[in-house]
Design a protein around this nucleic acid. Sequence first.
DNA 1: GTGTCATTTCGAGTTTTCTCGAAAGGTCAT
DNA 2: ATGACCTTTCGAGAAAACTCGAAATGACAC
Lengths: 112, 112
Amino acid sequence: MKPQTAVEALGSLAHEHRLALFRLLVQAGEAGVSAGSLAEALSVPNSSLSFHLAHLFRAGLIEQRREGRSLIYTANYAVMNDLVGYLMENCCAGADCGTDAACEPAQERKSA
Amino acid sequence: MKPQTAVEALGSLAHEHRLALFRLLVQAGEAGVSAGSLAEALSVPNSSLSFHLAHLFRAGLIEQRREGRSLIYTANYAVMNDLVGYLMENCCAGADCGTDAACEPAQERKSA
DNA sequence: GTGTCATTTCGAGTTTTCTCGAAAGGTCAT
DNA sequence: ATGACCTTTCGAGAAAACTCGAAATGACAC
């Protein structure tokens, strides 16, 4: 993972609303949540919500699929795992600290 | 971990220089690195570096100790682990994804 | 205490981010 | 193709973050 990629991902998460969104999606799993439900859950105007979703999307942290007239958002677990791995890389000057975080949903993942 | 705490920690990491600083300290382990060495490693003016170190410190991600006239900075692994745990909390709607990231240096930790 | 070295704080200018209403873009039923 | 619905894009004002030189603080040696 390149530093700039990590900075963008972290910047996306470094905001009250976006962090709440991302955690909601992480907890929702593959099923995901619609844009409308997210706006309601956070009590945020649609335009603001869309701005934040686009931010997270640009950073690769979330994905989007259409379902009828709704857009369903899901967390991108592969990117999240990469990010965490990047943070902890070569942790502790080689000391034996168990760093093997990973979240792999039972269902299919595109390329992980 | 409270949302605002996580936002501050993520915001601290969401910057090229601060992310580089933090990763350097994570890799340095308990030995840590002096402010001067960090400024040199990043080729950043002292005043800018100090600004970023203070940012990371305020967020609890790094710690500070004096050694002669130098200030030595070290990563706070406990906060890092909490942050990662917070991100992955209740991951995947209960699916069995192995999320047990943690980095615990062999040496003493204050309260973890 | 005087000088020197390591680091932080102050201040002001520049740049970036956040917010949200209004308008536009797609999707579906009739 | 008209209307209803869900969502995004646009735009401009308000707020926050970044940078770095200059001045101040704290620690050590003599």
